[in-house]
Nucleic acid binder design. Structure first.
Lengths: 147, 147
DNA sequence: TATTGTTATACTCTATAACTATA
DNA sequence: TATAGTTATAGAGTATAACAATA
């Protein structure tokens, strides 16, 4: 096995490195509760659409830091699965208003319950206050890095 | 512009979502200080190799959560750039012992200084204790998620 | 002129499976 | 038989540039 217990010393004092490893672990955990039917990023998008129905694709793309051209196959995929729909956008015939179908809402409700369990496990593991603290620190980090 | 101030409410209470957004921001920040000569993941790998010279490719791959076949083109790339070298692995002729060249060490030293500046900016923005706290919370998170 | 959605295209990153040479 | 490195291959996921329709 060559279980040679590597030295991670230098790596362990860098926010960027721990962020990367945490994200890999979080994505694996998401897949383990959500299955392969949906990607973490698509789940986030569906939540965003549910909370902001009727937005156009470009607005949604910007919100999740994607190019609007990258949004097209994602919306296509979710639409073909019956989770969302493109409707006429009031006052601009170039755009579509994106919203969840009832099937999409049902899926999201199911997934959210499972993700809640995961978040709760995180809360149990870290302590509830620490989980909140982590979220708050991550948001501050984004502020610092976006300067 | 349609600066419609989207509602991010549900998204902002999930560790996974903030993790994803933080990581996107951190990668952009890394690129802005390191340039396009090296990827964040390759930088991490070089540090790991410097701190653990002589390990084989499979051990390194496992340490950074990659398949050993995915490690091949990465090692190839870093080798062709003169940053590391494959040497005979003592006692196993199937394996290579990976180590940094002096060129690799120089590059890493330069990059580390710039990344230190970045980490310091994070420390200034969050407060030094909070930066340490963030790292510690991220590590605990990885423990929780790896059960 | 500028913007929305789209297409065509290409590039990066990764995994799976099968091969080879050793063990 | 099992393991280290490699290859061939395929699949995500993303961006850039250019286009038609509309603003």
């Amino acid at each position: 096995m060559n279980k040679a217990a590597l030295n991670f010393g230098s790596l362990m004092d860098m926010v960027g490195v721990e962020l990367r490893h945490s994200q890999i672990a979080a994505e694996k955990a998401f897949v383990s509760v959500a299955g392969k039917q949906i990607l973490p990023g698509h789940f986030t998008l569906l939540m965003l659409i549910r909370d902001n129905p009727g937005q156009n694709q470009t607005t949604l793309a910007n919100a999740v830091h994607l190019d609007r051209s990258s949004m097209v196959p994602i919306i296509d995929d979710c639409e073909s699965k019956g989770w969302l729909e493109r409707s006429a956008f009031d006052g601009d015939r170039r755009a579509y208003a994106i919203s969840l179908t009832s099937k999409g809402k049902r899926l999201l409700a199911t997934l959210e319950k499972r993700v809640d369990v995961l978040e709760q496990r995180i809360g149990d593991g870290l302590g509830k206050e620490n989980r909140a603290l982590l979220i708050s620190l991550l948001r501050s980090l984004q502020d610092v890095l976006s300067d």
